[in-house]
Each structure stands twice: as C-alpha cells, then as structure tokens.
Amino acid sequence: MARIIVVTSGKGGVGKTTTSAAIAMGLAKKGHKTAVIDFDVGLRNLDLIMGCERRVVYDFINVINGEASLNQALIKDKNCNLLYILAASQTRDKDALSQEGVGKVLDDLSKDFKYIICDSPAGIERGAHLAMYFADDAFVVTNPEVSSVRDSDRMLGILSSKSRRAEQNKEPIKEYLLLTRYSPERVKLGEMLSVDDVQEILSLHLLGVIPESKSVLNASNSGIPVILDEKSDAGQAYADIVARYLGENKPHRFIDDKKGFFGKLFGGK
C-alpha cells in the first residue's frame, strides 16, 4: 500500500509544485518507487518543472475517463527510474475530476508504488479538495507572511474535517509544516514572520525551512527538480526534509542569518 502525500497550501504561488517535484525526486532517489500527480487541471506546470512537458501524451483526466491506461499515461522520469509523473490536462476544465475517478486512480497506483505525491492547485475548490481528500500525510507549504499563514490554517481545518480519513473516523491525516521562501535577513528587518511566529500561530510539526533561493528558478528553467542541485541551499533543504520525513534526525538549517566570519565579528549577535 502506498502512502499518499498531499502538498497543499490554500494560497497560490507559495511553492507547492516546486516542493512536490523536489520531494518526489528525493523519495525516489532514496529507493522508493514514487508517483507525482498534478491536480492543477487547466494550469499544468508540474511537467515543466520535471522537464517532461514534451513527453506528455496522455494525462490524468484521460486515465479517469478511461481513454488511456495508467501505464500509458505515467511518464518515467529521465533522471530517476523509480519516479513517474502523471501530468494534468491543459485543455480540460476542472469538472473533469471526479472523486470516484481520482479514488480509482489512487487505488490502482497504490498497488505498485510506495509514495504518491499529489500536487494541489491553489484555493479550496474542487481540485484542491480532491488532491487532499485521499491523503495520509499533508505537507502544508507556507510562506512567512500573514496571508499565507492564514490560508494554511484554513486548509488545516479542511484537512481535519473533509478528508476521507475524517469522514471514515480513521486516524487523522498527519500534518507537517514546510516553511518556504524563507529569508532570515528579511525576518530580521521585520518584513517577514519568523519561524517561531509561524509555529506559534499554526502549532504544527515543522518538517523543514526552505530558504528563498535563486537556485529554484534556475532549476525550474532547466526542468530539473532543485533537490538534484546538491550544492544549492534550497536543494539541501529539500534533501533534509525528505530525510526527516523518512525518520532520520537532521537538525534544522537555513533558519538563522547565515552571516560570514566578518558578519559574526561585527554584526552583534
């Protein structure tokens, strides 16, 4: 049986797709057969970030409608043979997603895969609801600003009441906080909430902090998940997150102002 992870946020543009791609690649690189599904029907871009947009023949909706088999639609990643991508349709409208259809696809995938990552669209409408409905774990992606934190809080409420686990009175979805686009300098200037501020408002288990980093844009431009850029801070942050999720003990990084020697010498504490 696969473990289903939803990457969700409520607010748009906070880094869900970036995170989905990185986490999926990270899990696959650790030897777990992983599928990543784009739930953002009409606005697909997971395939761009994974660099497989030219190989999309069939998509998620085709499989739901029975127009293609899962095997036909799953795209094998070019960097890792344990990773598969199920792209969203660019042409269909959102109503094409049905709860029954999504459930069936996830059930079929569960037989063969260890992890299934669901990249949720923004908002709390149908697509976002279906992306989280079947989840076992939720990665709540949040930026250190008030509106993003508020939307995450709202999403957490929905996760705890409108999911399959909630409806069937099973053990609730495990919720994790991923604080992305974090900039210690801006926190210091008071332009952003600190990790502690966010933790205080959401009181959620912190899986990791991903710094604001140019490497993310570079990675998406070249169609390679940033986690493969092992020298980059964002890549390392995502690698830490995957390791922590799998039970390894990794101290948190990228939270403090990373001043060099001179900064430490002259910058006070």
Partner: peptide, 8 residues
C-alpha cells in the same frame, strides 16, 4: 481537544 482552524 484539537485546534479550531480558520474558517471553522
């Protein structure tokens, strides 16, 4: 015993 989240 669980948190009450925004919108609830």
């Amino acid at each position: 015993t669980h948190p009450i989240r925004s919108g609830q």
